[in-house]
């Protein structure tokens, strides 16, 4: 039997239902459900301890949820429950289809190998073998994240915080992922460095048509990058919707508090 031809554009890439993570008796995140579509950028906001990162880690298979399911549509168009896959399949997914940008670049980079190797390594993981091609692609990507070509052989310990973060982004995007997770990618950077990174991310996400789930406590970052937003508190999603609608007309008491707490420069 043949399947009806349908564009996967209109089908969710990720379906999250009732995802719950308990740490003993304490709630990490509880009953979180949402769909993410191709090309969509979803921001998860809330204060420290609200469960944002726990949720992100449950989605990215870095933590096993206590209950609930997370389904992902692979390149063949099949919906697969991440937690019913074998470890090998999951690792393959992390290497080919996904990226994960950590808040601290040191967690996502290999600090003792060169910038070029940091990018090239991901390419080799998906089967690239030709040294010249790998180096060319790595150079191209370093250019796209505004790292000068003559820094390709330096290791990231010699880079500034902003450069390291841009290198981490290049390392994640070089394999052409479909879904990228980001945990506070602009946290701890100076505002001018942050602006440059945001501008870069904004351009890359639009050009590559990436789906992104970004955790941030910075509502301005969420407004600039995301289409939709989930507001979390005490492990629960308390409000969700279009980013500008949630930020300009917040309905819940806690969201109103968050929005009214932003400092105007």
């Amino acid at each position: 039997m043949s399947l009806p031809i349908q564009s996967t554009e209109d089908l969710p890439l990720l379906q999250v239902s009732n995802t719950t993570k308990l740490y003993g008796g304490r709630i990490g995140c509880k009953d979180v459900s949402f769909d993410l579509y191709p090309g969509e950028v979803l921001a998860i906001v809330g204060e420290s301890g609200s469960g944002k990162t726990t949720l992100l880690n449950c989605l990215a298979t870095r933590l096993t949820p206590t209950s609930g399911s997370v389904n992902y549509r692979n390149r063949m168009g099949q919906m697969r429950n991440l937690y019913e896959m074998s470890e090998a399949e999951r690792r393959m997914l992390m290497r080919t289809d996904w990226g994960f940008v950590h808040q601290h670049p040191a967690d996502g980079l290999r600090m003792t190998v060169s910038a070029g190797a940091n990018v090239g390594e991901r390419l080799m993981a998906v089967g690239a073998r030709h040294y010249g091609n790998i180096r060319d692609t790595a150079t191209d990507w370093l250019g796209r994240v505004e790292i000068a070509e003559d820094r390709i052989d330096d290791d990231p310990r010699a880079f500034s915080g902003g450069m390291r973060q841009r290198l981490q982004i290049a390392r994640n995007l070089v394999t052409g992922p479909r879904l990228v997770f980001m945990d506070e990618p602009t946290g701890g950077l100076d505002v001018s460095v942050q602006a440059r990174l945001l501008d870069l991310l904004r351009g890359l996400v639009a050009d590559l048509g990436l789906s992104v789930i970004i955790v941030t406590h910075d509502l301005a970052v969420a407004r600039l990058l995301s289409h939709r937003i989930l507001v979390m508190r005490h492990g629960h999603v308390i409000e969700s919707g279009l980013t500008d609608q949630v930020l300009d007309d917040p309905q819940e008491s806690y969201t109103q508090l968050l929005v009214s707490s932003i400092l105007q420069p």
Binding site: L242, D244, Q245, D248, D249, Q251
Partner: peptide, 9 residues
């Protein structure tokens, strides 16, 4: 106007 644009609920 903002409701028509769905900026307000």
């Amino acid at each position: 106007l903002k409701m028509i644009y769905a900026n307000y609920r």
